[in-house]
Simulated scan of single mutants.
Amino acid sequence: MPGVGVDPAAFARHAEELGLESLWHGDHLIPVTPFLDSTMVMAATAAVTTRIGLGFGVMVLALRPVAWAAKQVATLQRLSGNRVLLGVGAGGDPHGDAAWHAVGVPFAERGSRTDAALRVLPGLVRGEPTPLNGRDVVLAPGAPVPPLLVGGDSRAALRRAARFGDHWYPSFATTARIAAGVRELADLAAAHGRPTPGVTAGVPVALGDVPASALERRVRAMRDYGLGEEQAREVLVTGTPERAAERFAELAEAGVDRVVAMPFTDDRFRQAELVARAAAARP
């Protein structure tokens, strides 16, 4: 999705016309850069599109009371015709604990609270009687539970994906790390008696003629986000659409079913066009 300052409705229409499979938006309360509310953006996008998937990349579930999160998800499913792709995550260190302090949730409890929320979220979204805080809760109207994509590439995230997820959703992970994670995920899912989740990978992209200074700024930003220099440079997808198609094919060989391209330059509409060309050029 576009950053602040780009009309999300116009961008969504453009992406749908290009034939892209889905649109994605991050979810932050107090991040290091300005961010629009993900659920509001998704509602606006649902209103102006008819086909394209609406992906949370990812909803930080523990920042919200789970009943409210479920209500928002069910409402978006009904408004969009069941097009939501619900990425969920526990949140990480790079943005600090300001958002957690603001909502009164201990930062150290984000993982356990995410697991607790995932145990009850499907029933709440479907509108089924679901035990919550000592009594059964029914949210109406219910809706089909969207695909659940569990974000992160830590051991805890893999365990969470194996237990609850339809997909594992790592971002900024190298191809080798994803391949290793896929093997581990299969074992973890089998231990829960579940099929191996699919894999959706988020990758930063800047296609076409991009100034070197823009790439260096992005590398610095990813280093600030906790990535090492070598990893930050390795995960960038740059160059022609044909070269990007080759990179996407390499990810597919590692077990990736869906690539979420995350453009970081200002020409977001043009980047969407180049990503669509890359998707069409995949061998």
Rank of each mutant, 00 (worst) to 15 (best):
A179F: 06
N133S: 12
R217P: 09
A173N: 13
G87Y: 07
V260W: 08
P144Q: 03
E17R: 10
T114Q: 08
L132Q: 06
G89V: 02
A44E: 14
G181K: 03
V275K: 11
L274Y: 02
D257T: 03
F248H: 11
L124F: 00
T265P: 02
R217A: 07
T50D: 15
D224H: 15
E242Q: 15
V84K: 03
T114N: 06
V58S: 02
L149T: 10
G91M: 13
T45K: 12
F264Q: 07
T238V: 10
A221M: 11
V259W: 05
A186H: 10
G26D: 13
A180C: 09
Q72H: 03
L86C: 08
M42W: 14
S112H: 14
V105C: 03
S38E: 09
S38F: 06
R163S: 05
P144D: 04
A278H: 07
L18W: 03
D257F: 00
G104R: 12
A279R: 15
P204M: 03
R110C: 00
A189I: 01
A140I: 14
P195N: 03
L139G: 00
L76R: 14
D7K: 01
A10L: 05
A15F: 01
D37T: 02
A272Y: 00
K71V: 02
H95K: 13
A191I: 00
F172S: 12
A140Y: 14
L29I: 12
L227Y: 04
P106V: 00
A70D: 02
A186P: 10
G181Q: 04
L79P: 05
H14N: 05
D257V: 00
A74Q: 05
T196I: 04
G104F: 07
L36V: 11
V4N: 02
L227W: 06
L148K: 04
R135N: 13
V150Y: 14
T174N: 13
